[in-house]
Design a protein around this nucleic acid. Structure first.
Lengths: 194, 194
DNA sequence: CCAATTTTGTACCAAATAGTACAGTTTATT
DNA sequence: AATAAACTGTACTATTTGGTACAAAATTGG
């Protein structure tokens, strides 16, 4: 168990890579962009990520799930009113202070940016979006169990509805700078949770 | 006004370029891909499109608007029940026979695929999505005028709702192969037009 | 301190990239 | 047929791409 120690923190440089991918998109992010942002040399990079750019992106997706989705899930399991939480979450997407900024959804972006022959990455992105769908579904189910929802719709259908809303907003944000219009749009969609 | 005539049809090669961009994405489509599909040489290409790939993409967007959106608008102005037309349109997106296939929306894709420093292309894509929004809004307004809609929501808000649904579906399609789930999702969304 | 092990930086490379230069070809007008 | 205009194909280039090779460096256990 000897050996020269890493001089960087693996999660720290992953976070840097996430930033670059999110900002520039998978296809447009060059290895140089990434290395520069991560602040490591090619040697270290190809040593740590033998699969090159693709492996880095795969790990960066894991990291984003860990940082973002898991946080949502945790918050949902502890909060008293999951329905209100969902509503607040979506409304928060329409403001400047959005956690996502204008960069969209990491996974939705991936589905659209990754070239067709990288089917593996696409499948992973799809899988994580399904995870988000599940999280929404669980929240709705919990809301139903608590008697907070009148709707006849099954929780799973509402989960699908919400992940589709998420996908939509993350594109619509980019064409619609008017935050009031976005907020109205979200509110209109959230009526389904009354 | 002399000179050798073109040996190719400008719109025909544009259509080929559209195919490539739609299939591979803007960033992933190389000049070679495009030239090969268009069946012309570099000389002809850079003569016809002095702006290179970017100009080609700009013109390809115009072409897609011309071919797709204008057709929708025309169909809407002539049809008796614009509300039903909208519903059928969205439901058609969930099937195999979708006009869009799994390639998504040309302009939504562009918003997500084009690199940040190509702000010009992004603005054009956003503009065309706003055109689609307008088309939806007009259809809804017409539906209201004809007494086909009970909703209190303003037509413009519903237009925004529908373009957001469009944006969402075009991403969600890529993560959700189950067409029945997609169809249910669309039906749930279209209840707002009852 | 020596050896084993792991990490790092630099130099290098082959392929692919978008784009240019330009000579030559084809046609309409005269 | 001569000429001007419009078009086309080929050869070329400079840059950037992702990726490899490998020797040197840093650390720990013996």
């Amino acid at each position: 168990m000897a050996g020269r120690p890493k001089i960087y923190d693996e999660t720290a440089i992953l976070d840097k890579a996430v930033e670059v991918f999110w900002e520039k998109g998978y296809a447009n992010a060059t290895a140089d962009d990434l290395l520069h942002a991560m602040g490591i040399g090619k040697g270290s990079f190809y040593f740590a990520f033998k699969g090159g750019k693709e492996e880095l992106f795969r790990k960066s997706m894991e990291r984003v799930v860990e940082l973002n989705f898991k946080a949502i899930r945790d918050a949902l399991t502890t909060c008293a009113d999951p329905v209100q939480f969902i509503k607040d979450f979506f409304l928060s997407l329409t403001g400047n202070e959005s956690p996502v900024g204008n960069k969209g959804c990491y996974f939705g972006n991936a589905l659209i940016q990754v070239s067709a022959d990288d089917a593996g990455l696409k499948m992973i992105a799809a899988k994580y979006l399904h995870l988000l769908e599940e999280i929404f579904t669980e929240a709705v189910q919990k809301g139903k169990d608590l008697g907070l929802l009148q709707t006849q719709e099954p929780a799973a259908a509402l989960g699908t509805y919400l992940v589709n809303l998420w996908n939509g907003i993350n594109v619509t944000r980019r064409m619609e700078p008017d935050q009031r219009k976005l907020a109205d749009l979200v509110r209109m969609n959230l009526k389904i949770l009354d």
